[in-house]
Every structure is written in C-alpha cells, then in structure tokens.
C-alpha cells in the first residue's frame, strides 16, 4: 500500500545539563495517504514533539522520516521550509494567527511565501475562507472573531496552499464542545477530499472521529488500532 508517512525507529532527545533526555523512543509508524489518524497520550508523552518533527519544524535525533516517498532525514533548514511550504498545513490549539492581520491576510501568508501574485493570493484565500464558512468575516482581525471562528481561519490557512498533510495539535482544546464538533465535521469533510489528517488530542471523543488511533506513552507507541464505526 502507498504509505504517505513512514517513520523508522524515530527518536528525539534533548541534552539538558549534560544529561541525555530521551523524549521519543524508536517510533516506527506508517500512515497511508488519505488516512485520518489521531495520536493520543498523557501530557508530556511527546505528542507535540512528534508533530513538530512530522511538520518539519524540528528534526529527529535518530531514525528516518520519509514523507511521500522522499527521505527528509538530514535535510537543511532551507529544504525543510520548502517541504512545510508545499506539503504541510498546521492547526494549533491556540490558533496561532497573526493578530495584526485580518482573516484574508492570515490565510494568504502561505501563498505569499510561495511567491504567488497578490491578486491570486487574495482570490484563493477568500475561496478557502468561504470553504470553512467564514465568508462574512473575511476582514475581521483575530481579536474580532470567536475561538471557533479563529480556528476555522487557521484551517483555511492550512488548506489554502493545497497541502496534502494537515497536522493538528489539540485543535479543539480551546473550544467549547459545539464549536469543537463543527471543527471536527470540517476535518471529516476535508479528509474525504483526500487530505491526510493527523490530529493530536487528549479527548477520546475527538479521537473516535478518526479512522485510526495511535497511543503514545513516554515517547513510545503503546497502542495502534483501527476505529470501528
């Protein structure tokens, strides 16, 4: 089967006060293209660390990371930023929108860094905002939007460059259950269009919306099961 993500004995450690601190232990994981996967685990187990490595925001200390058939191990920061630009969309618990930019401008950012002309940036950003149901809120700044709306702006930003992989770290963590549900519905729709989703969560209800659940504990995979509807 066509594996979109392949991790081979991936490890991450930090050196703290001369001591080696192992955060991730030999994680091996394969994710086929188009899968909707959730990663669960207690706080401090290394979920975010794993996501940062998958998102090329951080590099592993050991092991191999292959994305869409390309080995990313040992790539330069410049090459990694290109991978982020082309292949990955991020959604964070705290939304991470730029407060000084309005919705359209926030959503345009990935396109700006791809060097796409301004008029096209605007068109595509508006289309992405429409896709997440924020047509009416295009020129609002983050502080003029509710948490759920802000998260939808962030989703639009993750979509706008047609990234095949969406990484979400506790996407509903700061939202009430209703807006959380709306976000998860949106995830399901976007996943149905063929995007690969990896969602980190504490919440079993959130995890149950995915197709597969991987549980990690102390930096190691302790459970990996398919969700049966």
């Amino acid at each position: 089967m066509d594996q979109f993500i392949e991790l081979e004995r991936l490890g991450k450690s930090y050196r703290m006060a001369g001591e080696e601190l192992k955060i991730l232990h030999e994680i091996s994981l394969s994710v086929p293209s188009g899968q909707y996967l959730s990663v669960i685990g207690p706080s401090g187990s290394g979920k975010s660390t794993l996501m940062h490595i998958l998102g090329c925001l951080d590099v592993p200390s050991q092991g191999r990371y292959v994305l869409d058939g390309r080995d990313l191990t040992g790539l330069s920061e410049a090459a990694l930023s290109q991978v982020r630009r082309q292949s990955i969309g991020f959604i964070f618990q705290s939304f991470n929108l730029l407060p000084s930019l309005n919705a359209v401008e926030n959503v345009s950012l990935p396109l700006m860094y791809q060097g796409i002309p301004v008029t096209q940036q605007k068109e595509r950003a508006e289309a992405a905002l429409e896709r997440v149901g924020l047509r009416e809120r295009m020129h609002h700044r983050p502080n003029q939007l509710s948490g759920g709306q802000q998260q939808r702006v962030a989703i639009a930003r993750a979509l706008v460059a047609d990234a095949p992989l969406i990484l979400a770290d506790e996407p509903t963590g700061n939202l009430d259950s209703h807006s959380g549900e709306e976000i998860l519905d949106l995830f399901a729709e976007l996943n149905a269009e063929g995007r690969t989703f990896l969602v980190i969560t504490h919440d079993p209800a959130v995890a149950s919306r995915s197709q597969r659940i991987v549980a990690i504990h102390d930096g190691a995979v302790v459970e990996d099961r398919k969700v049966t509807a």
């Binding site: 998102g55 982020r84 950012l109 860094y113």
Partner: peptide
C-alpha cells in the same frame, strides 16, 4: 518570536 515561528510554520524561509 511567536510571529516568526508562525511565519516559519506556514512556509517562510530563513531568507524571507
């Protein structure tokens, strides 16, 4: 710093 992190996450290169 956070803004820089966000910009990098959405694809800004070092040069940008």
């Amino acid at each position: 710093t956070r803004e820089i992190g966000i910009r990098k996450a959405v694809g800004a290169s070092r040069g940008a």
